[in-house]
Protein backbone atom coordinates (compact mmCIF):
# COMPACT_ATOMS: atom_id res chain seq x y z
CA UNK A 1 0.00 0.00 0.00
CA UNK A 2 1.39 3.38 -0.89
CA UNK A 3 1.33 6.56 1.17
CA UNK A 4 -1.42 8.15 -0.92
CA UNK A 5 -3.75 5.21 -0.27
CA UNK A 6 -3.02 5.39 3.44
CA UNK A 7 -3.87 9.07 3.43
CA UNK A 8 -7.08 8.36 1.57
CA UNK A 9 -8.08 5.78 4.15
CA UNK A 10 -7.20 8.09 7.05
CA UNK A 11 -9.18 10.84 5.37
CA UNK A 12 -12.29 8.69 5.16
CA UNK A 13 -11.62 7.49 8.70
CA UNK A 14 -12.09 11.04 9.92
CA UNK A 15 -15.19 11.56 7.82
CA UNK A 16 -16.75 8.34 9.04
CA UNK A 17 -15.69 8.85 12.65
CA UNK A 18 -17.38 12.24 12.89
CA UNK A 19 -21.01 11.10 13.15
CA UNK A 20 -19.89 8.35 15.52
CA UNK A 21 -18.13 10.91 17.68
CA UNK A 22 -21.11 13.24 17.89
CA UNK A 23 -23.42 10.37 18.74
CA UNK A 24 -20.95 8.85 21.18
CA UNK A 25 -20.57 12.11 23.09
CA UNK A 26 -24.33 12.49 22.97
CA UNK A 27 -24.69 9.13 24.66
CA UNK A 28 -21.98 10.09 27.12
CA UNK A 29 -23.97 13.02 28.54
CA UNK A 30 -27.10 10.96 28.86
CA UNK A 31 -25.51 7.89 30.38
CA UNK A 32 -23.29 9.87 32.71
CA UNK A 33 -26.53 11.34 34.06
CA UNK A 34 -27.98 7.87 34.54
CA UNK A 35 -30.24 7.67 31.49
CA UNK A 36 -29.47 4.81 29.11
CA UNK A 37 -30.11 5.73 25.55
CA UNK A 38 -30.22 3.11 22.85
CA UNK A 39 -32.22 5.56 20.78
CA UNK A 40 -29.17 7.43 19.44
CA UNK A 41 -29.84 5.78 16.09
CA UNK A 42 -33.40 7.09 15.88
CA UNK A 43 -32.41 10.60 16.86
CA UNK A 44 -29.69 10.69 14.22
CA UNK A 45 -32.10 9.46 11.60
CA UNK A 46 -34.69 12.07 12.48
CA UNK A 47 -32.04 14.78 12.40
CA UNK A 48 -30.71 13.57 9.06
CA UNK A 49 -34.15 13.65 7.47
CA UNK A 50 -35.15 16.99 8.99
CA UNK A 51 -31.91 18.74 8.18
CA UNK A 52 -31.83 17.51 4.58
CA UNK A 53 -35.49 18.42 4.02
CA UNK A 54 -35.25 21.89 5.49
CA UNK A 55 -31.90 22.55 3.82
CA UNK A 56 -33.42 21.59 0.49
CA UNK A 57 -36.59 23.61 0.98
CA UNK A 58 -34.87 26.77 2.25
CA UNK A 59 -31.62 26.39 0.39
CA UNK A 60 -29.78 27.08 3.62
CA UNK A 61 -27.70 24.43 5.33
CA UNK A 62 -27.86 26.43 8.54
CA UNK A 63 -31.63 26.31 8.60
CA UNK A 64 -31.27 22.59 7.94
CA UNK A 65 -28.86 22.18 10.82
CA UNK A 66 -31.26 23.95 13.20
CA UNK A 67 -34.13 21.78 12.02
CA UNK A 68 -32.05 18.64 12.53
CA UNK A 69 -31.13 19.65 16.06
CA UNK A 70 -34.73 20.52 16.91
CA UNK A 71 -36.05 17.23 15.55
CA UNK A 72 -33.48 15.28 17.53
CA UNK A 73 -34.25 17.27 20.66
CA UNK A 74 -37.92 16.50 20.23
CA UNK A 75 -37.11 12.80 20.24
CA UNK A 76 -34.84 13.29 23.24
CA UNK A 77 -37.68 15.11 24.98
CA UNK A 78 -40.03 12.17 24.50
CA UNK A 79 -37.35 9.83 25.84
CA UNK A 80 -36.95 12.16 28.81
CA UNK A 81 -40.66 12.29 29.54
CA UNK A 82 -40.94 8.51 29.31
CA UNK A 83 -37.87 7.68 31.37
CA UNK A 84 -37.55 10.62 33.77
CA UNK A 85 -41.07 11.93 34.34
CA UNK A 86 -42.91 8.62 34.07
CA UNK A 87 -40.02 6.42 35.18
CA UNK A 88 -40.56 4.12 32.22
CA UNK A 89 -38.09 1.52 31.03
CA UNK A 90 -35.28 3.43 29.31
CA UNK A 91 -34.29 0.58 27.03
CA UNK A 92 -37.83 0.03 25.81
CA UNK A 93 -38.34 3.73 25.23
CA UNK A 94 -35.15 3.75 23.14
CA UNK A 95 -36.23 0.74 21.09
CA UNK A 96 -39.65 2.31 20.52
CA UNK A 97 -38.25 5.64 19.38
CA UNK A 98 -35.91 3.90 16.95
CA UNK A 99 -38.92 2.20 15.38
CA UNK A 100 -40.85 5.46 15.18
CA UNK A 101 -37.90 7.30 13.64
CA UNK A 102 -37.25 4.56 11.12
CA UNK A 103 -40.81 4.78 9.82
CA UNK A 104 -41.65 8.42 10.19
CA UNK A 105 -38.57 9.70 8.37
CA UNK A 106 -39.66 7.82 5.28
CA UNK A 107 -43.28 8.96 5.63
CA UNK A 108 -42.33 12.61 5.89
CA UNK A 109 -39.73 12.53 3.14
CA UNK A 110 -42.19 10.73 0.88
CA UNK A 111 -44.90 13.27 1.64
CA UNK A 112 -42.57 16.21 1.00
CA UNK A 113 -40.72 15.04 -2.07
CA UNK A 114 -42.44 11.91 -3.40
CA UNK A 115 -39.15 10.30 -4.28
CA UNK A 116 -39.53 7.03 -2.45
CA UNK A 117 -38.61 8.37 0.97
CA UNK A 118 -35.47 10.21 -0.14
CA UNK A 119 -34.79 13.91 -0.31
CA UNK A 120 -33.59 15.34 -3.61
CA UNK A 121 -29.81 15.82 -3.77
CA UNK A 122 -28.55 18.91 -1.96
CA UNK A 123 -26.43 21.44 -3.77
CA UNK A 124 -24.69 24.75 -3.14
CA UNK A 125 -25.67 26.56 0.03
CA UNK A 126 -27.81 23.65 1.13
CA UNK A 127 -24.71 21.59 1.99
CA UNK A 128 -21.66 21.89 4.17
CA UNK A 129 -18.56 22.13 2.02
CA UNK A 130 -14.95 21.27 2.76
CA UNK A 131 -12.85 23.93 4.44
CA UNK A 132 -9.24 24.32 3.48
CA UNK A 133 -7.18 25.05 6.56
CA UNK A 134 -4.55 27.83 6.44
CA UNK A 135 -1.33 26.97 4.61
CA UNK A 136 -2.65 23.60 3.43
CA UNK A 137 -1.76 24.38 -0.17
CA UNK A 138 1.55 26.00 0.70
CA UNK A 139 2.75 23.18 2.91
CA UNK A 140 1.72 20.45 0.52
CA UNK A 141 5.27 20.04 -0.74
CA UNK A 142 6.70 19.35 2.71
CA UNK A 143 7.52 15.64 2.67
CA UNK A 144 5.27 13.26 4.66
CA UNK A 145 3.68 15.93 6.88
CA UNK A 146 2.62 18.22 4.06
CA UNK A 147 0.32 15.76 2.33
CA UNK A 148 -0.87 14.51 5.73
CA UNK A 149 -1.95 18.02 6.67
CA UNK A 150 -3.44 18.70 3.26
CA UNK A 151 -5.24 15.42 2.71
CA UNK A 152 -6.19 14.25 6.17
CA UNK A 153 -6.35 17.22 8.53
CA UNK A 154 -7.49 19.90 6.14
CA UNK A 155 -10.39 19.76 3.76
CA UNK A 156 -13.25 18.60 5.93
CA UNK A 157 -16.53 20.31 6.55
CA UNK A 158 -16.95 22.63 9.50
CA UNK A 159 -18.85 20.03 11.53
CA UNK A 160 -15.84 17.70 11.59
CA UNK A 161 -13.81 20.32 13.41
CA UNK A 162 -16.75 21.09 15.69
CA UNK A 163 -16.91 17.40 16.58
CA UNK A 164 -13.25 17.27 17.47
CA UNK A 165 -13.51 20.43 19.58
CA UNK A 166 -16.52 18.98 21.39
CA UNK A 167 -14.20 16.41 22.96
CA UNK A 168 -12.09 18.80 25.09
CA UNK A 169 -15.18 20.90 25.70
CA UNK A 170 -17.00 17.86 27.08
CA UNK A 171 -14.04 16.93 29.24
CA UNK A 172 -13.91 20.46 30.62
CA UNK A 173 -17.65 20.61 31.30
CA UNK A 174 -17.63 17.22 32.98
CA UNK A 175 -14.62 17.66 35.21
CA UNK A 176 -14.19 21.37 35.69
CA UNK A 177 -17.64 22.85 36.05
CA UNK A 178 -20.42 22.77 38.61
CA UNK A 179 -22.80 21.38 36.02
CA UNK A 180 -20.40 18.55 35.23
CA UNK A 181 -19.97 17.65 38.89
CA UNK A 182 -23.71 17.48 39.35
CA UNK A 183 -24.21 15.57 36.13
CA UNK A 184 -21.70 12.91 37.13
CA UNK A 185 -23.20 12.76 40.62
CA UNK A 186 -26.73 12.22 39.37
CA UNK A 187 -25.60 9.25 37.30
CA UNK A 188 -23.82 7.70 40.26
CA UNK A 189 -26.12 8.45 43.16
CA UNK A 190 -29.20 10.56 42.49
CA UNK A 191 -30.13 10.42 46.19
CA UNK A 192 -26.97 12.39 47.01
CA UNK A 193 -27.97 15.05 44.51
CA UNK A 194 -31.53 15.13 45.75
CA UNK A 195 -30.60 15.55 49.41
CA UNK A 196 -28.17 18.29 48.43
CA UNK A 197 -31.21 20.21 47.29
CA UNK A 198 -30.63 19.89 43.53
CA UNK A 199 -33.37 18.73 41.18
CA UNK A 200 -32.61 15.25 39.85
CA UNK A 201 -35.18 15.59 37.10
CA UNK A 202 -33.87 18.99 36.03
CA UNK A 203 -30.32 17.69 35.71
CA UNK A 204 -31.38 14.62 33.81
CA UNK A 205 -33.52 16.60 31.40
CA UNK A 206 -30.57 18.94 30.80
CA UNK A 207 -28.38 15.95 29.99
CA UNK A 208 -30.99 14.46 27.69
CA UNK A 209 -31.34 17.80 25.91
CA UNK A 210 -27.58 17.92 25.27
CA UNK A 211 -27.85 14.39 23.92
CA UNK A 212 -30.51 15.69 21.57
CA UNK A 213 -28.34 18.53 20.33
CA UNK A 214 -25.33 16.31 19.68
CA UNK A 215 -27.37 13.62 17.93
CA UNK A 216 -28.84 16.41 15.86
CA UNK A 217 -25.35 17.42 14.79
CA UNK A 218 -24.53 13.80 14.01
CA UNK A 219 -27.59 13.38 11.81
CA UNK A 220 -27.17 16.74 10.09
CA UNK A 221 -23.56 15.89 9.32
CA UNK A 222 -24.65 12.61 7.75
CA UNK A 223 -27.20 14.21 5.43
CA UNK A 224 -25.66 17.57 4.62
CA UNK A 225 -21.92 17.00 4.73
CA UNK A 226 -20.97 13.32 4.46
CA UNK A 227 -23.68 12.76 1.89
CA UNK A 228 -25.81 15.13 -0.14
CA UNK A 229 -29.26 14.35 1.11
CA UNK A 230 -31.30 11.89 3.13
CA UNK A 231 -32.01 8.29 2.20
CA UNK A 232 -34.04 5.75 4.14
CA UNK A 233 -32.18 4.08 7.02
CA UNK A 234 -29.11 6.09 6.05
CA UNK A 235 -27.62 5.94 9.56
CA UNK A 236 -27.28 2.17 9.11
CA UNK A 237 -26.65 1.22 12.72
CA UNK A 238 -24.23 4.06 13.48
CA UNK A 239 -26.16 4.86 16.64
CA UNK A 240 -25.36 1.39 17.91
CA UNK A 241 -21.71 1.62 16.88
CA UNK A 242 -21.55 4.90 18.81
CA UNK A 243 -23.03 3.12 21.80
CA UNK A 244 -20.38 0.46 21.41
CA UNK A 245 -17.70 3.15 21.20
CA UNK A 246 -19.04 4.71 24.39
CA UNK A 247 -18.62 1.44 26.26
CA UNK A 248 -15.27 0.84 24.61
CA UNK A 249 -14.21 4.28 25.87
CA UNK A 250 -15.59 3.48 29.33
CA UNK A 251 -17.71 6.63 29.32
CA UNK A 252 -14.70 8.98 29.06
CA UNK A 253 -14.63 11.82 26.52
CA UNK A 254 -11.04 11.63 25.31
CA UNK A 255 -11.14 7.86 25.07
CA UNK A 256 -14.38 8.30 23.11
CA UNK A 257 -12.43 10.18 20.46
CA UNK A 258 -9.97 7.32 20.04
CA UNK A 259 -12.72 4.70 20.07
CA UNK A 260 -14.65 6.53 17.36
CA UNK A 261 -11.53 7.00 15.25
CA UNK A 262 -10.81 3.27 15.59
CA UNK A 263 -14.33 2.28 14.60
CA UNK A 264 -14.29 4.87 11.83
CA UNK A 265 -11.07 3.30 10.61
CA UNK A 266 -12.76 -0.11 10.41
CA UNK A 267 -15.56 1.43 8.38
CA UNK A 268 -13.04 3.08 6.08
CA UNK A 269 -11.28 -0.26 5.60
CA UNK A 270 -14.57 -1.97 4.84
CA UNK A 271 -14.89 0.44 1.89
CA UNK A 272 -11.52 -0.70 0.53
CA UNK A 273 -11.39 -4.51 0.75
CA UNK A 274 -8.76 -4.48 -2.01
CA UNK A 275 -6.34 -2.56 0.21
CA UNK A 276 -6.96 -4.85 3.16
CA UNK A 277 -6.31 -7.89 1.01
CA UNK A 278 -3.12 -6.39 -0.33
CA UNK A 279 -1.81 -5.64 3.13
CA UNK A 280 -2.62 -8.84 4.99
CA UNK A 281 -2.26 -11.13 1.96
CA UNK A 282 -5.48 -12.91 2.87
CA UNK A 283 -8.95 -12.20 1.62
CA UNK A 284 -10.85 -10.73 4.56
CA UNK A 285 -14.59 -10.77 4.01
CA UNK A 286 -16.12 -7.32 4.36
CA UNK A 287 -18.73 -8.46 6.90
CA UNK A 288 -15.86 -9.35 9.19
CA UNK A 289 -14.71 -5.72 9.21
CA UNK A 290 -18.30 -4.62 9.73
CA UNK A 291 -18.59 -6.83 12.77
CA UNK A 292 -15.26 -5.85 14.29
CA UNK A 293 -16.48 -2.88 16.38
CA UNK A 294 -19.16 -5.04 17.93
CA UNK A 295 -16.80 -7.91 18.63
CA UNK A 296 -14.31 -5.55 20.27
CA UNK A 297 -17.05 -4.05 22.39
CA UNK A 298 -18.16 -7.48 23.55
CA UNK A 299 -14.57 -8.21 24.55
CA UNK A 300 -14.49 -4.98 26.55
CA UNK A 301 -17.82 -5.80 28.15
CA UNK A 302 -16.52 -9.21 29.06
CA UNK A 303 -13.63 -7.55 30.83
CA UNK A 304 -10.95 -9.03 28.60
CA UNK A 305 -9.73 -5.54 27.68
CA UNK A 306 -10.10 -3.73 30.97
CA UNK A 307 -13.35 -3.57 32.87
CA UNK A 308 -16.11 -1.26 31.73
CA UNK A 309 -18.04 -0.04 34.76
CA UNK A 310 -21.10 1.94 33.74
CA UNK A 311 -22.43 4.81 35.86
CA UNK A 312 -23.92 3.18 38.93
CA UNK A 313 -27.41 4.62 38.73
CA UNK A 314 -27.67 4.01 34.98
CA UNK A 315 -30.97 2.69 33.72
CA UNK A 316 -32.73 3.02 37.05
CA UNK A 317 -35.47 5.61 37.38
CA UNK A 318 -35.00 7.67 40.54
CA UNK A 319 -37.66 7.13 43.16
CA UNK A 320 -37.36 9.23 46.25
CA UNK A 321 -37.00 7.09 49.35
CA UNK A 322 -37.16 8.06 52.97
Amino acid sequence: MDYATLLQILDSTIRLATPLLFACLAGLYSERAGIFDIGLEGKMLMAAMSSASVAFLTGSVWAGLMAGILASMLMAGIHGIASITFRGNQLISGVALNFVASGITVLVAQRLFGQGGRTPPLEGEARFHPITLPFAEELQSVPILGPLYHEVISGHSLLVYVAVLTVPLTWWILFRTRFGLRLRAVGENPAAVDTAGISVKGLRFAAVAITGILCGLAGAYMATALQAGFGREMTAGRGYIALAALIFAKWRPVAALWACLLFGFFQALALRPDVVEAVVQVKIPVPFLDALPYVLTVLVLAGFVGKAIPPRAGGEPYVKER
Binding site: F175, R176, R178, L181, R182, R184, N189, V193, G197, R312
Partner: peptide, 26 residues
Amino acid sequence: FKLVQNFTVLENVVLGAEEGALLAGS
Protein backbone atom coordinates in the same frame (compact mmCIF):
# COMPACT_ATOMS: atom_id res chain seq x y z
CA PHE B 1 -25.38 7.78 53.51
CA LYS B 2 -26.09 9.93 50.49
CA LEU B 3 -22.56 10.05 49.12
CA VAL B 4 -21.27 9.64 45.59
CA GLN B 5 -19.03 6.62 45.95
CA ASN B 6 -16.45 7.43 43.30
CA PHE B 7 -16.15 11.13 44.18
CA THR B 8 -13.56 12.52 46.56
CA VAL B 9 -14.51 13.84 49.98
CA LEU B 10 -14.05 17.37 48.67
CA GLU B 11 -16.33 16.82 45.68
CA ASN B 12 -19.02 15.33 47.91
CA VAL B 13 -18.84 18.24 50.32
CA VAL B 14 -19.06 20.79 47.55
CA LEU B 15 -21.88 19.10 45.61
CA GLY B 16 -24.92 21.37 45.66
CA ALA B 17 -23.08 24.11 47.58
CA GLU B 18 -20.75 25.26 44.83
CA GLU B 19 -19.63 28.88 44.71
CA GLY B 20 -19.94 29.49 41.00
CA ALA B 21 -20.23 27.79 37.65
CA LEU B 22 -16.61 26.65 37.77
CA LEU B 23 -15.33 24.13 40.28
CA ALA B 24 -11.80 25.25 41.06
CA GLY B 25 -12.81 28.09 43.41
CA SER B 26 -15.35 26.00 45.29
